[in-house]
Amino acid sequence: MSEKTVRVPYYPGCTMKTKALGFERSAMDCAEVIGFEMDELKDWNCCGASYPLTKDNLMGLTAPTNILVEAERRCQKEEVDPNLLTLCVFCYNTLKRTEFAFGQDEKKLETINAFLDRKYEGSIRVIHYLEYLRDVIGFDNLAKMVKTDMSKYKVAPYYGCLLLKPQKEIGLDDPEDPVILHNFLDALGCKVIDFPAQVDCCGSYLVMREPEKVSKLSYDILADANEYGAETLVTACPLCQSNLDQSQGDKVQFADLDGMPVLYFTQLLAIAFGLDTKTHLLEEHHIDPRPLFEASGSSDGESK
């Protein structure tokens, strides 16, 4: 750990405290190694999960604004940089787009402020954990902290949709040909498997209404990664993780494909750091990733 730990205000969101607990725990453990602390907001609410796409839906902006107010107050009180760290891609997208909307349209902000009876001044910059690693820590510095030889793992970076789109508002990377996860995996020393389906949609919330379609879309993505030689897939989105991982329980759709573990990028980072991953809930994944890493982690696992 570095001499002085930086505290970064952090918004978890609902999924991070329930189904994606392993994502949050691994991210926090890695942050400690890197030298920053994810400082959770004290009073937070659900962001609403999906950003309203129609202009008339102002109600959908109230929940994310309430979070931005909370973060702004915290940053002003503690005199820290007005950054708000996120992990969940849906939260990131919703909060980031809200931030962008207010930058474009002050009237909108006034209306929401009046409705909430709170004053958001518009100072918060929403950032994703990956963005923090790239822009603040630097992937080259991250590479120096890696303890495990990761070169034997063939890892496919899977981006999905909401981490990148709409580019004009999110601005993290190119939505058609992104590199941020590739560069992250490069820094870890993994064998990066570039595959065409890396930005294809997994089916998202359609799992509520048409799970068979989500199965099919997930199959297409995983079969593509498999064809290009991947052993595992990493993602930053809990819904992508869930869809891609849980869909593999559909034995009919997945009849000709061996199980492929789907990891959060921070779970892989923890492995690269050589951390104890017992609390990172790898065992709760439908396709257990542990055999892959345990087998090749030992010296006799060099076969392939």
Partner: peptide, 18 residues
């Protein structure tokens, strides 16, 4: 099964969209 196993974001988004 859906309610028990899906991440909250899927349930909340589904409520909003459907």
């Amino acid at each position: 099964d859906f309610l028990a196993h899906s991440p909250q974001m899927a349930i909340i988004s589904g409520f909003r969209k459907f």
